[in-house]
Design a protein around this nucleic acid. Structure first.
Lengths: 128, 128
DNA sequence: CGTTAGGGCTAGGGTTCG
DNA sequence: TCGAACCCTAGCCCTAAC
C-alpha cells in the first residue's frame, strides 16, 4: 500500500485555485496540463482536482454545521496552529485575493508555552 | 441522553473477525452487507466496524500498558510523517505470523503490487 | 475512448463517555 | 488517567452521463 494518504499542500491549493480562475471550474484536465500548474500538481489527477475543489467549496461556504467554537476554544497545552487559506472564487477578474480573517485566538489566562516551532507562513504563488 | 453507547459483544467481534477474513480488512461495507454477518452486525455501521477493528488491532499488537506515548508533535511543516502499522490477525496469544488480510480475489485490474509472491494465507484462525 | 459530476466509502484524527 | 465507542471529514473510489 503505497498510498498512505496524500494531503493537499497549500501550494497545491493555491495552484488549483489559480487554475480555476484561469481556466474555469470543471476544466480539470486543462488545468492539469497547463505548464503553469503542472509543476505543482503533477502528482494529482484531474479527479483529484475535482474532489479537492468540492471540499474547498464546501468549506468556504458556511463552515459546516457542527463547528463553531469547538475548534477555537480548545485549551491545548501546545502551540495552536493557525493556518487558514482563503477560499473564494473570483469573478473572473484579474487580481483577487480574499483574506480570510480567522480570529482564532486561544488566550489562556496563563502563560502559554513558548513556540519553539517555526511558524509556517507561506505565501501563495504568484498568479496572473 | 440519546446515545447509550453500545458495547461490542463477543458475537459481534467474532463476526467482524470472520468478515475480515472473508472479505479483507477495509471492506467494511461489504462485510456489513454480507448476509452471513448482517444478522449479527445489523446494529453497526461500516464506520463502527472500522473503529472496532482499529481497537482490536491495537490490542493485538501487544501495546501493553507501559508505554509513554508522546501524543504531541502535531504536524511539522517538514518531513512527511511515515506511519507503518502492521496488522495481525488471530487470537491474542503468542503468534507472530503476519497474515495478509487481502481478499483472496479482488477486482482484476488495479495497481496491484508487481510482486507475484503468493503467500499462503492461513485461515485456520477463527473465532474464539 | 476520455472526462466530468456526483454519490459512496474508507482512513485517520478528534471527541465523548465510562 | 486511560481506553472503548462514537463523530467529523479530507481524500479516494465507483459509476453514470456526456
Amino acid at each position: 500500500m503505497g498510498a498512505p494518504k496524500q494531503k493537499w499542500t497549500q501550494e497545491e491549493e493555491a495552484a488549483l485555485k489559480a487554475g480555476v480562475i484561469k481556466h474555469g471550474a470543471g476544466k480539470w484536465r486543462t488545468i492539469l496540463k497547463d505548464p503553469e500548474f503542472s509543476s505543482v500538481l503533477y502528482l494529482r489527477s484531474n479527479v483529484d482536482l475535482k474532489d479537492k475543489w468540492r471540499n474547498m467549496s464546501v468549506m468556504a461556504n458556511g463552515w459546516g454545521s457542527r463547528e463553531k467554537a469547538r475548534l477555537a476554544v480548545k485549551r491545548v497545552p501546545q502551540v495552536p496552529k493557525q493556518e487558514e487559506n482563503s477560499m473564494a472564487l473570483g469573478n473572473g477578474q484579474s487580481d483577487e485575493e480574499l483574506v480570510d480573517t480567522k480570529p482564532v485566538l486561544v488566550s489562556s489566562d496563563r502563560v502559554q508555552v513558548a513556540a519553539p516551532k517555526r511558524s509556517i507562513v507561506r505565501l501563495d504563488i504568484l498568479i496572473n
